[in-house]
């Protein structure tokens, strides 16, 4: 496989959860990500729904994945190789080309499709940044 393949997706790779627990990448469950985000404090898990999958215009050979992210349903598009695995809630590892993922990483994958909801992370918003009316903030102090 090309050297640039991220080795943390290689079957058997050891992953450390925020709780300190060690697990193999192929054994991870949805709960592991959710609990790790809770424990780590600075990170938040977002549900990102795949709304469109296209071949990337800018970078041939890559796939453009269109997501709606989190409660605000903000639109985010990323270009990834078709074999790049994503963790889908309640389903596990999935990619646009499960055969290639299996060949390159040895990781068994479902076929990623529009409508799948993937685990993604973003920075935890510190509370005061949320848009709360001013008076309500004063009462809290």
């Amino acid at each position: 496989p090309a050297p640039s393949n991220p080795s943390h997706f290689m079957k058997g790779a050891i992953i450390q959860l925020a709780t300190g627990e060690l697990k193999r990448v192929e054994d991870l469950q949805t709960q592991d990500f959710v609990r790790s985000a809770e424990v780590s404090g600075g990170l938040k898990i977002d549900s990102s729904m795949v709304v469109d999958i296209r071949t990337s215009q800018q970078r041939p050979g890559l796939v453009a994945l269109h997501f709606t992210v989190g409660e605000q349903q903000s639109k985010v598009t990323i270009d990834v190789p078709p074999e790049h695995p994503f963790f889908v809630f309640g389903q596990g590892w999935s990619s646009c080309s499960p055969e290639r993922t299996g060949q390159l990483y040895g990781l068994a994958c479902h076929h990623l499709q529009v409508g799948d909801v993937c685990v993604s992370i973003t920075l935890q918003q510190p509370p005061q940044q949320q848009k709360q009316p001013l008076q309500q903030q004063q009462q809290q102090q």
């Binding site: 943390h8 997706f9 790779a13 450390q16 959860l17 790790s36 985010v76 994503f86 685990v119 973003t122």
Partner: peptide
Amino acid sequence: VPVFPWHSLVPFLAPTQSD
């Protein structure tokens, strides 16, 4: 044996300023 942090496995999808 290398150990990888859990968050390196999931994409960081924050809305870009243009959203």
